[in-house]
Design a binder for these strands. Structure first.
Length: 379
DNA sequence: GACCCGTGGAG
DNA sequence: TCTCCAAGGGT
């Protein structure tokens, strides 16, 4: 049951004097413990925006080297708008959630083409840009333009659910408004950007998911859940489902021109990235039929013939241990197969090409592909 | 609203 | 090994 303020009868509120004291204490904590980060050098929208996109579902430590490299490669929004996709994805390689990179460029082109290179300055307008949702819009608007608006991310959910004992399920998007309404009156009018960044720093350094140390800070008296010993009961979050297991086969085909790699479709998992040809046996094998390994290979040969007009020679299993790679929602177990080709294969129907070692350096490879290559190299 | 979309670190 | 998490957004 939600805690209710006796004066206003609205849920999850503080009195005016409580708010004053909280703000003073919280911002004082921030002024002492504020982290120095590359994207805090100044408040240029391009730099702040890039950091916010990279930090989506990604830890600070992981982002920092990518951030520096990306800024060096694409110093301005104009450079980014004009970048070749291959270089864009290569710069993002390994960071994951690759649609972020494509949306980043889409938004850069919106800025250049639709906004004459001038950033919109409100969260409402910012949210119209590709890849910018409610959180990122709030973060940029408050940090760069001083708009008094919450930036509600995982840290904010955790900090304010514990502060105010908000027991609404944070996994339910419908409950976001409850947090918005609760946080908005807590934002100091003169420091909205600092406030939102203070939430990040406090949430990631003190009010952490595991082993929180709220009790060791001056903020402890304000945390209602800490006061009654229920800090770890918050936030309330329903469980996610487990990654679904999927069996795949990678077909490694060598030739004097290099190895055959396939560019994935422009939508869906690992969009536009490059891997060995990956076959999902479940998709090309007859259902409800027990097949021998030899028969399975025959089906794969037929699949390559019919789909790509490629004749595989000597398709065979390797003695390599399968590669296991887990995504958020999928768990791939990949068997490695080898094949030879007759000379002068026509790749007219194959979405890929032969890659030499040098050419491999230029193309964006997902981590699962790097794992597959490592498995081969170490044997 | 439910599902899709990566990766690396922590315990 | 397994589970959960980490500055979410798109469809």
């Amino acid at each position: 049951m939600p805690s209710t303020d006796s004066l206003t009868n609205k849920p999850y509120q503080m009195t005016t004097s409580e708010i004053q004291a909280f703000q003073t204490t919280f911002m004082a904590w921030y002024d002492v413990h504020r982290r120095e980060l590359p994207w805090r050098l100044n408040q240029e929208p391009y730099r702040v925006w890039l950091s916010e996109i990279m930090l989506q579902q990604t830890q600070v430590q992981t982002v920092i080297p990518y951030y520096e490299r990306f800024l060096a490669t694409f110093p301005t929004v104009v450079d980014l708008a004009a970048a070749p996709e291959e270089l864009l994805l290569k710069t993002w390689e390994g960071l994951g959630y690759y649609s972020r990179a494509r949306n980043l460029q889409k938004a850069a082109r919106q800025i250049v083409d639709d906004y004459q290179g001038q950033w919109p300055q409100t969260s409402v307008e910012l949210e119209k840009l590709a890849g910018i949702g409610p959180y990122t819009a709030g973060a940029i608007a408050s940090i760069c333009f001083g708009e008094v608006v919450p930036a509600i991310d995982g840290n904010a959910f955790r900090v304010f659910s514990r502060l105010l004992k908000i027991d609404a399920d944070i996994a339910n998007p419908k409950n976001r408004q409850i947090f918005y309404d609760a946080i908005l009156p807590l934002i100091p009018q003169d420091r909205p950007g600092d406030f939102n960044q203070a939430v990040m720093d406090f949430g990631s350094q003190v009010c952490t998911a595991k082993n929180p140390t709220v009790g060791e800070t001056d903020l402890a008296p304000f945390f209602r859940s800490y006061q009654d010993g229920t800090l770890l009961d918050y936030p309330v979050k329903t469980k996610k489902q487990r990654p679904k297991p999927v069996a795949l086969m990678a077909v490694i085909i060598q030739s004097p021109q290099g190895v055959l790699l396939q560019k994935r479709p422009s939508t869906g998992l690992l969009a536009n990235l490059t891997t060995y040809p990956l076959v999902v046996p479940a998709d090309i094998l007859p259902e409800d039929e027990v097949l021998t390994p030899e028969e399975i290979l025959t089906y794969i040969e037929r699949y390559f013939q019919e789909t790509y007009a490629i004749t595989l020679q000597q398709l065979r299993p390797t003695n390599l241990k399968p590669v296991v790679h887990t995504f958020t929602h999928l768990k791939w177990t990949i068997e490695l197969l080898q094949a030879e080709l007759v000379a002068d294969v026509d790749l007219a129907f194959f979405p890929g090409q032969w890659y030499s070692e040098d050419a491999l350096q230029m193309v964006a490879l997902p981590t699962v592909q790097k794992k597959l290559m490592a498995r081969i190299k170490t044997n």
